[in-house]
Amino acid sequence: MSRATAAARDTAGPSGAPAASSRPPAGAAGVPGAASGTTGPPLATAEASPRSARLGAWAELLRLPALFTVPGDALAGAAAAGVRPGPRTLLAIGSSLCLYEAGMALNDWADRAEDAAERPHRPLPSGRIRPAAALTAAGALTGAGLALAAGAGRTALAVAAPLAATVWAYDLALKHTPAGPAAMAAARGLDLLLGAAATGGGTRAALPCAALLGSHTLAVTAVSRRETTGGSVLAPLAALATTGALTGLVARRRTRLPAGRRAAAAPGLSGSTPAPAVTDALAAALGAAYAATAARPYFHAALNPSPPLTRRAVGGGIRATIPLQAALAARSGASATSLLVAALAPAGRWFAKRSAMRKVSIT
């Protein structure tokens, strides 16, 4: 995803999948990958031990804080398909995480020459990670992601295979072409469908939610393509309009589900089904949180399309993926799932502040 949104890398974007960047997750999630590089100093310092410096370099390469944007894809997909998350949903989440990180590693490997000129502090051009090691990691993570999807069933593997192909195609061929943002959007949408397929609910019912999440990833990726140079007013304005439209769609009253399907889509206490008014109110509140997270940095980037504000807009768009996933789950009638997804946002912030990841940019 830039390396936005897999996964988005944003989403391949998977969930992944790649993210968006001028050079452009996840996630992704590929998953909607993440946007391009960090702006701060390298994580490793002269005082750091060799082991901690090495681990810090890999954390920077893989952009670990962005991983919190990935599990919501599979959970929202299960909710949209009208089924409760289960063990196979966990396999889908594991697959998404692997494919998202594969997109991150592959993104930096593909951009190593460009990073040497524009971001010499990144792990590969600085020599802290060898290019061959990054490429090997991308291949191994892709294999692990496909194996986990296969464990969730043939239908899940049938979705994960094109997701993995989209991640690799984006990073190696499509990133700098007009098709780049669309590839990132496809990766994030496929990641949501992977959750629906793995959980056993089928993918057709989850297509509308996949389209909405893909639209968000498309907007973030388009903004990220200018994050190192700035100068684009149109992209953040378009992203701002997209955010408004998506907020309106997730806040609309949903079509009432049949009683049996509504009960399956709303995991909670045995025999309990949230009242439609409750899930509608929850979807509206989470939609407002999505808008609050994404709209302001987009607006600032439109007023002043400098590289720092453009990068901030990309970061805001990536972080907004979580409340959007939660709002989509609530709109599908799965209130407990939506609250679980929403909790990933503060968990991600806590993780970034309390660990060595605090210096690792989400983009």
Rank of each mutant, 00 (worst) to 15 (best):
T228F: 00
P162M: 13
E118W: 01
A222M: 04
F351L: 14
M1K: 08
A132M: 06
L344G: 00
G195D: 14
A48Y: 00
G200I: 08
L90S: 05
L163P: 11
D191A: 15
A183D: 03
A34S: 12
L62P: 05
A263Q: 11
P276I: 05
P32D: 15
V31W: 12
V70G: 00
A343I: 01
R23S: 12
A292C: 08
A345D: 08
A53P: 05
D73L: 08
Y100F: 03
P297I: 08
S49E: 07
G202T: 04
G333A: 04
T203A: 10
A78L: 05
A138P: 07
L340D: 00
A53E: 01
L55C: 11
T243W: 03
T69D: 06
R119I: 15
T39D: 15
L249G: 03
A211L: 12
A152N: 06
G86L: 01
A238R: 15
A80R: 09
G13M: 09
R358F: 00
A264D: 11
A12F: 14
L55V: 09
G202D: 03
P181I: 09
T142A: 01
I129T: 09
A245H: 09
A66T: 00
G214Q: 09
V31G: 14
L146P: 10
S21M: 07
A264P: 01
W350F: 10
S2T: 10
M104T: 09
P307W: 01
G30V: 13
S232R: 13
P42W: 04
A205V: 02
M1I: 03
D191Y: 15
V341C: 02
A12R: 13
Y170L: 10
T177Q: 07
